[in-house]
Design a protein around this nucleic acid. Structure first.
Ligand SMILES: [Mn+2]
Ligand SMILES: [Mn+2]
Ligand SMILES: [Zn+2]
Ligand SMILES: [Zn+2]
Lengths: 139, 139
DNA sequence: TCCTAGCTTAGACTAGGTCTAAGTCAAGAT
DNA sequence: ATCTTGACTTAGACCTAGTCTAAGCTAGGA
């Protein structure tokens, strides 16, 4: 019983076998998988699982606010089960490696009122970029 | 003579008629266009301009560091000629409207050393999200 | 003038993601 | 227990952003 499944259950959202496998595949990892990677892994446990269900399910979990959708490169979206812990990301520009990081301040507090253009600002995420140790050595 | 063209000239990079039209199309706007929008507009001035040249040219300007590539949604990339002024973005979750904003501090300073995982951190960008005045009224 | 490297082109191609139409399933009503 | 109905799943067609290819075009240097 994964923590993500527990959180999903609270939204009286039907936990079908397919949805459970997808959620457990996401939760089991400490990385940020693409939809295709999730399909690839989930299919090992449920071979008849379809691509459409993976995409539908991920989109629903994002809509419920229990999974984050990350789009740092222009390539595939990545899915992050860690939606209940505020955090940011550190991305290697060499190899794409992505780490969770925690900043010392909430960036929303650093946006002055006259820079808000009348918006209601609900959240902010920081993308830190640099080179990981391996890519530093390689260059 | 646009400011972006002036900056590009410094990299001894051939300013062909196509590249000039693309750069001026980008520069002339205060918004964040997609490649297709740039093609659409540039073609009004140079009808034989090709899609491939627009993509090649945008990628080169990004590689030169004179244009920023923004990927906030999982859809098309957006191009920002304002690469010489450090800034962040405020995005409406309702309609996608994107505004430039300036924070009161550099987020790199808020990332403690023990959160850097051995990376060299070179830059950080903040994506603020919320609802624009129009989308607030509509909801 | 000729050569060469770089630039541009049309259009084929790829990959990520969405949509459709048909079939399956499961919770609540009877 | 069976029925009903809406929700869920499926295969595969489809869409769109972006890349690649092969051929032709340019411009600057020898
Ligand atoms: Mn994360
Ligand atoms: Mn901008
Ligand atoms: Zn790296
Ligand atoms: Zn809006």
């Amino acid at each position: 019983m994964s923590d993500l499944v527990t959180r999903l259950r609270r939204h009286n959202w039907r936990i079908t076998p397919q949805r459970r496998v997808i959620a457990e595949t996401l939760e089991g990892s400490h990385v940020h998988f693409t939809a295709e990677q999730i399909l690839e892994r989930a299919v090992e446990r449920m071979p008849e699982l379809s691509r459409a269900t993976v995409y539908n399910t991920l989109n629903e979990m994002v809509a419920l606010g229990e999974v984050l959708e990350l789009t740092f490169d222009g390539r595939s979206k990545r899915y992050d089960p860690n939606a209940d812990h505020e955090h940011h990301h550190l991305i290697c520009e060499g190899c794409g490696l992505m780490k969770d990081v925690h900043a010392m301040a909430d960036p929303v507090d650093w946006l002055p009122g006259d820079e808000r253009h009348g918006f209601t600002v609900t959240r902010a995420s920081i993308a830190y970029r640099g080179l990981c140790p391996e890519c530093q050595a390689a260059s």
